[in-house]
Structures are given as C-alpha cells and as structure tokens.
Design a protein around this nucleic acid. Structure first.
Lengths: 329, 329
DNA sequence: CTGTTAGCGCTTTCAC
DNA sequence: GTGAAAGCGCTAACAG
C-alpha cells in the first residue's frame, strides 16, 4: 500500500489539507511548515495519487494520443516529441492505437473517454476520416495533426511542401516528373498532388496523368508505384513521393532493376524521418517541423482546456532538405 | 459533464449499486433488469469513469511503458505490439519516455507511480541500467524486455541470435568477420559479442580483436564503426551488427566508399525492423519475435498482479531472415 | 495560517 | 434481487 496524504498528515501532526497545500507550495501555509512538510513527504516517499486527485479536481493531466500505426517512423518520432512537450507541462500520454479495424477504433477511443483524458491529440494523419466524427461526442477537446480541415488542428502546409519538392526537381532540369500518392491519406495526398500540379503548370510544364500513381503511404506502395512508373514507355526521370517510406520503397524498386538513384531517376520524399539520411543514397526530402507540430498541438489542447481564447488553427511551413537522392551533396 | 452512474440509476429507477452490478453482468441482478440497465446505459452514452473506478478498486487497468527512444523502430514496433495485447486484456498504455537525461528519468518514473499504473513494462532495452533499481521501490511489478538478468523479464536469446548470424556468414565462406557492438546496450551487446566469439572459436576460426568495434546502437555508430573497419589494412568481408540500425549505417558507409554490399562486404543486422526489407540491398537479419516479447511481457505483468504462481522468466529464440545484404535471394 | 467538512464517481460489504 | 452506507485518497470551499 502506498503512503497516503493521511499518513503524512499524521506523521507531521497537521491536517491533510495542510499537506495538500504545502505540496502545492501554496503561500497560504507558513513557509516553515511548508518546508517541513515537503521534506517529510519526500522522506516518506509520498507520491500523491493522480487517480484520487483526478477524481477530486476533474482534471487528469493525461493526454490521449490516437495513432493508427505507431510503428510508422513519422508517427513515432512525432509522438516522441509530443511526449517531451507533454512532460514539460506535467502531462502524461495515454496511448491508443486504433489499428485498422473499425471495431477496435471505437473501443480504443472509448477507452480514452473512460480514462477521462483532459484532451486527445490525433497524432497520425492516416487515422481514418470516419473515425473523427465519433470523437466529437466526447467531452474532451480533440486536436488533429495534419488534418487542417477540422476545427482544431495543427498541420504542415502540404501545398507548400509539394511546391518546394517540385521546384527543386525542376531546377535540376528534370522534365518528366512523377508523383506517387497515398491511398491511406487521401486528403493530404490530394493536397500534395495539387501542389505538384500547380507548380508544374506555373512553370509551364505539362501534367501527364500517367506519371501520377497511387501508393499506400508505405514502402510497399512506393515500390509498386515506382515499378509501375518504370514500365511506362517513357519513364520519369524524377519522382516526388508522398512520404519518406514511399520514397524508400521507390528507391528500392528503382535500384532493384539496376537503375541508379539519382543517376537515372531522382527521388524526393516528404516528412524527413531520421533514417532518411542513412539510406544509399541519402534521401532528399521535404521536412516537416515535427517538433513544432508536437509543441503546438499540445499547447492547443491545453489552451482548449483552459478556455482561453481558442487558439487558431496552425499551418506550418515545410523545409527542403537536399541530399544524395537528387544528386545534391 | 459526463453521464454518471447516478444519472443512469435515476433514469432506471434503481440504485447505483444495481447499475454497477448490471454493467458487470453480475448474476446477482435479475436478468431482465440487467438487460434493461445495460441498454439504458448504452443509450445514455454512459462511460464509467475509470478514475473513480480506479480509486474504488485500486486497480487502474493501465500499464506503464518505459522507453528511452520511442523513435527507434524496434522500440516503436514493440510498443505497438504491446498496445495490441494490452488492449485485448482491457488495459491501456501510459507512455513514459525517459529521454537520456537522468533527471527526466526519475521524473518520468515518478509520474508512472503517481498514476498508479498496475504494472510497468520497460520496453526499451537501452533504458539505462541505473534506471532499473529505482523501479524496485515502486509498488507495482516491473517487467523488463531484453534484460534477462532482472527478476522479471522476457528476452531474446542473444547468444543464439549471434550464433545464427555468424554461422550463416561462415557458411557463406567468409573468413574475416567483424562485429559492431553498441555502447548504449552494454549487456545485450556483450552477449551477442560472446555468441560471435564462441561461434568463431567453435568453428576453428581465430578471433581478431581489431575486427571488433563499438557503435552506439544507431545508424551513426554503425556508419562510424564500418568506416573504422574499412580503414583496416585488411578489412573484413562480412560484418555482424548489433542491430538493424547499426547495419543500416554500416551499409551506408560501405556503399559511400564505392564498395558493394554484398559484393565486397556482407552485412547482417539484428531485430528485423520492418524497413529492413526495403533497403538496397534488403537486409539479412536475425529477427526477434517482437509479437511474443510483447505478449509474454504483458502476460507476465498481469500474472504478477494477480499473484498467481509467478511466471518464470522467458527466453525466446531468434530467427535468421535471409536477404540481399548477404547475397541471399 | 490551519482545521473541518463535503464531496469527486464508483465498488462493495452488509442489510433487508 | 436490490438498496443503503461506507470508503477509496485527494482537493476545495468554508470556518475559525
């Protein structure tokens, strides 16, 4: 049995309330008593029960984090940042992977509701759209990452991201430029596609529909997408991929046929996962500011809680990272 | 304000206790009442407060998961499995990355204690040893993954893993065989090193100390380790790496100098992270049964809780996965 | 400055 | 088969 506030109160010869106040460093208790109590609590190894405190204050200091696939490097890096920020604010993360099964989705989200998390952050953009409405029913605010169309979100500007990538490739002199999208992230992928198309058009290049194929946001989809492009009578000389995993798969497919990256085909990814720089060749990519996505999403969640002026939706820029897969460096 | 059990009781015209029992499907309440209450609760969108329940039962149905770096693919894949299993048992995961800072470590672990998690699983083998003793003080049982020397653990047999890798390389005809270890995972790395040495000796090969270098369990360490090996007067023709990230880094370094994998040097990793098969060439590796590690660690944690006969420590086998980086397939 | 009193929402004896 | 009452460990008025 853990030490309770009563135990400490008895030991200190004061009432539980005083202990409670002293530990909160309330000025309402005499400095001396405060110090004494604090030290005593420390010595006794007293750990306030977050559970009892939660019941009393109706605030659990827990953030629910919903993801579909934690194993996706972008997602795990993001969650890692979120955890850091949350920790700084005295919050813990309650994880909830909803898997791909609609049944589990609901169960997972209900678990979060039962746990009375103060807010939930949907940290994986591939969490299905159909999952989102059910969240509204909950009483805790929901912040979505990279779903800018929802009430509370912080997202990377996909249009700008695609523009950076395509301009880079165009600057390199490429004229046949493909895009591999993601069926798992329809909206995001569509936005990046739009950026791709707009940029081509703006720079006076034709948009060839046969150069637009769909992956699944993972390596496999990237591989298959690239394989399809390679079978074209006139294959592209550069590929912009929905994300870094797609790009990895694409590079694999290209290299497996004996072609060279970037010698024959240049590849650009998106996200900037940590492993990208260790691929051969290192992956040129459009980086998302994961640290900012994390920080802002936590801050937004917290601001929603404290009913300050509702923090507006955030749209973050992206950053081009030049590496070997487009022949840079 | 969420619907409380009182609300449901009022609506149903029975007492809270009956609601509580009905929802637990207790035979003590008449079948008809039970059904009626269950449906009513459903309709009213009643979600029992895990927090109040936790206070009353002293069981939170939460598992604390301690990791150092969630962004490590092995770790995130593992946690992903743990989440699945935990969910099946009606448990949620409370995440706690302790970062590399000893200060935060303590804070992170204290958070878990305050949250009164039922048990904690240390899911990242690179969580520093010095962190472990402080866990014993907690009142909740602790299960460690891949730290077989601790009271409650489930681990992959590192000796066997290394043996598989080295035998494979030897079978391929290699005679100069290097090992890149990890300074961040001393014990594990030492075990794999022992397996490497024993196997070489058993098969009548010399153990050349200059072929044993240390990485950091990540790509960078792998890169540097391989670079060091390449500068040797007589470089190895095969490298067994502490883990897949190390192997990725090593492959990068080798390929960056214009050498070929596996043409000039074969590389074997360990862990079998999902991305391995999409590298060029795809990575031969010794797979850990991550699903089993996850399942058994959760089951061990739960068994510890329910004070059944304490489940003995588990040692799992490893499995060789042949791919391109050793010229297979 | 400190103590007393009431809950927070649930489970669980113990009665009826 | 169901209800009443106590209590889980804490916080937060309200007194003094």
């Amino acid at each position: 049995m853990p030490v309770t506030i009563q135990d400490v109160a008895n030991a200190a010869g004061v009432s539980p309330s005083t202990i409670s106040r002293a530990l909160a460093d309330s000025p309402r208790v005499k400095l001396e008593t405060r110090r004494r109590v604090q030290q005593l609590a420390q010595e006794m190894g007293y750990m306030p029960s977050a559970i009892a405190r939660g019941l009393a204050t109706r605030r659990t200091h827990k953030l629910g984090v919903v993801v579909l696939a934690l194993a996706d490097p972008f997602v795990s890096e993001l969650v890692s940042y979120i955890d850091q920020v949350a920790c700084q604010h005295g919050y813990s993360l309650l994880l909830s992977s909803c898997g791909d099964d609609p049944q589990r989705e609901l169960a997972a989200f209900n678990l979060l509701r039962q746990q009375r998390v103060d807010a939930v952050i949907v940290a994986d953009p591939s969490v299905p759209e159909r999952f989102v409405p059910s969240m509204k029913n909950g009483e805790s605010p929901v912040v979505l990452i990279n779903k800018k169309h929802y009430p509370h979100s912080v997202a990377t500007d996909n249009l700008a991201a695609a523009t950076l990538a395509v301009n880079h490739l165009l600057d390199l002199g490429h004229t046949r430029l493909a895009y591999i999208g993601s069926s798992k992230n329809k909206v995001e992928s569509q936005e990046r596609l739009t950026g791709y198309q707009q940029t081509l058009t703006q720079r006076g290049m034709p948009v060839d529909p046969s150069l637009i194929v769909e992956g699944d946001g993972g390596c496999q989809g990237g591989w298959q997408g690239a394989a399809k492009l390679l079978r074209l009578p006139e294959p592209p000389t550069a590929i912009f991929c929905f994300d870094d995993l797609t790009a990895m798969g694409a590079m694999g497919a290209i290299q497996a046929t004996g072609l060279s990256v970037p010698g024959d085909i240049s590849v650009v990814g998106c996200d900037d996962i940590a492993l990208g720089q260790y691929l051969s060749p290192p992956l040129t990519t459009v980086a998302q500011y994961k640290d900012q996505l994390a920080r802002l999403s936590v801050e937004m969640a917290l601001s929603l809680l404290h009913a300050e002026q509702p923090m507006p939706n955030q749209l973050l820029p992206a950053r081009l990272v030049l590496r070997g897969s487009t022949g840079c460096k």
